[in-house]
Design a protein around this nucleic acid. Structure first.
Lengths: 347, 347
DNA sequence: CATGCTGTTTGCAGCGCTGCAAAAGCGTAG
DNA sequence: CTACGCTTTTGCAGCGCTGCAAACAGCATG
């Protein structure tokens, strides 16, 4: 079998007594083929076990039938959950998904956004940038269809899909305030160029305070390089080491929240009695942790399908459509980490 | 730019004043090219910003430069952690990774193991089967290089990479027995064809008992359709509802363990004081849960690199190498869920 | 100076498919 | 019976690259 010349269009054509172009038409389901021919060709296809050679097809068509999805870290549950939806949506449209993880490396991100090192490997990219600067985004190859996830305002040459981070963060913060907490901390700020997502959350955090006429406890706004457990655990420890520690914490991701809770429990503090904790992302882990984590739940399914939809539209269109700002819905899900035992439930 | 004829080998050749074949040689780093020519060509390449068209290259070479990784569920942390290693290892070798998730669907798995619906999309597959029967494996296209992960004994036509599940499970069970626990439960058995992995773990569980001359509490061996949190939580609830509930539980995955702990804590029981819990896989979640989960930690990095290495070897070799049984190391990592507060640590 | 030898470069065919435009069929109208 | 418009089928060129084998060095040797 190996290397043993495979069945081609021409073989099928010969057997069916038609031209190879007609076989191609049948295989691709083109319109103008008589039922008679279609049947004969189909028979030949089945008999020979013909399967199209995607490589040749793609070369001839000038597109690869693949899209790339670029995320900073694959093992971040938020991304893998999102990825799942993206793969499904793409497959439905006959597209394959290439996955790449950048580890937040700027150079790597920059390269990928410019078609990687070779042409035509993928027809478009869904990108979740981390270290990518605005300039890098600006002077990329504009011919490569692009959809950005997360926080990055579109400059009109690509689409951006995300939730309203400011509103969501405000809502999260208000929830903590509604509980009567007064010393609110925020974990995850990133006050530098590539930390846009974080900054929006901080802004929501502030706005919530402003609306109630409360001051923000600036010393309780803690930065973390990443949104993961370790950083969350570390930041929480840091917070607890001061006098007048917080009685509630808004974490910029569920992982950060899980890390924070880990530290709290480790120090013998009770969640939420001593410190209430709210997260962001609604990953599965948060639903089953002890206590389950109150969180902002973005509609991941919607984000995934919207991203794929827009990207394919962009790929298919000869004149690039305008870059849109697309907002997926989100909602606050209250669980034990803020509301206490009463509200526990397995979703 | 769009559709605006891209730079080809021939363009470069013309500028450099050599044949296109020579340019190809330079681009691919072939040996016999004088420094002089190489330089001139390289200059032309840089000047024109030439990037090879992978599609054309692959068509000419007759291989796609891609491997597929097929897992049942992408959002299972164990898989996404493994995937990460696989992607890295493949990239180093110049291979791209296509990811597919089957949701455990037999038909889908069967299709993928036969090259999917088209030829040459990928040169080989790393497969983590769930619903795949032995026959399906047997009558697959033998020309497609295959490496199987998890529990599936090789029939000699593919490689199998995994840890020694029986030994690992025995070790996990012995750890519980060493703690002085006497009523051991096991959650995750799957006593049907496609549940081989589960069955091996059950076997290890039994062997540990046998070695100590202890009887297995058969009524405490609980099956679950999947190795996830929900099933773990449900099975645990089930166990607690009987009289004479277990004082220790061996869970066949960390997710199951997290689910079980969720239920235990939810019912006001203490882990490990009332019930000790041990998991399997060593996913990150388990390290940061409350309490952190004792677990069997397979060397995922090793599994990933070995799988890729073997697959590429298989792809590159004209005569298929014999199918090997490859064992990656594992170790027991003791955390609070069995050992109590003393052993807590953030790894 | 012819001969052979290694090292470098070239030309051509072809991977298997699709785009395009022309050719062929076919039914209806003049 | 011819002309016309429509649908169906075909032929050809070419996507951009690499495999192969031949051609052409350049150099040492007899």
């Amino acid at each position: 079998m190996r290397r043993g010349r495979e069945v081609t269009l021409r073989d099928v054509a010969e057997l069916a007594g038609v031209s190879s172009r007609t076989v191609s038409n049948v295989v691709n389901g083109y319109a103008n083929v008589t039922e008679r021919t279609r049947l004969r060709v189909q028979q030949a296809v089945d008999q020979l076990g013909y399967r199209p050679n995607v490589l040749a097809r793609n070369l001839a068509r000038g597109r690869s039938g693949q899209i790339a999805v670029v995320v900073p870290y694959l093992d971040t549950p938020y991304f893998s959950e999102l990825l799942q939806g993206i793969i499904r949506a793409a497959r439905v449209q006959g597209y394959n998904v290439l996955i790449d993880q950048t580890d937040g490396d700027r150079e790597h991100e920059r390269m990928l956004i410019n078609h990687g090192s070779s042409r035509l490997l993928f027809d478009g990219v869904i990108f979740s940038p981390l270290g990518l600067s605005q300039e890098a985004l600006a002077d990329r190859d504009p011919a490569l269809p692009l959809v950005i996830l997360g926080e990055r305002v579109s400059d009109g040459t690509f689409d951006h899909v995300g939730i309203d981070d400011i509103a969501a963060s405000r809502q999260a913060t208000e929830h903590l305030l509604d509980l009567g907490r007064t010393r609110l901390a925020a974990i995850g700020d990133q006050p530098y160029e590539t930390g846009e997502a974080a900054q929006l959350r901080t802004r929501g955090f502030r706005e919530a305070h402003e609306r109630r006429g409360l001051p923000v406890r600036e010393d309780l706004v803690i930065g973390t390089p990443r949104f993961n457990r370790v950083d969350g655990a570390g930041a929480m420890a840091h917070l607890l080491d001061r006098d007048d520690p917080p009685d509630a914490v808004f974490c910029y991701s569920d992982l950060v929240a899980l890390g924070a809770i880990h530290t709290l429990v480790g120090r013998g503090l009770r969640v939420p009695e001593d410190v209430a904790v709210i997260g962001y992302d609604d990953i599965e882990d948060g639903r089953y942790s002890n206590p389950p984590v109150t969180t902002i739940s973005p509609d991941k399914e919607m984000i995934a399908t919207t991203a794929v939809e827009r990207l394919l539209l962009r790929i298919g269109s000869p004149t690039p459509p305008p870059g849109l700002e697309l907002r997926a819905p989100h909602r606050l899900i209250v669980r034990e980490s803020t509301a206490g035992r009463a509200s526990s439930m397995i979703t």
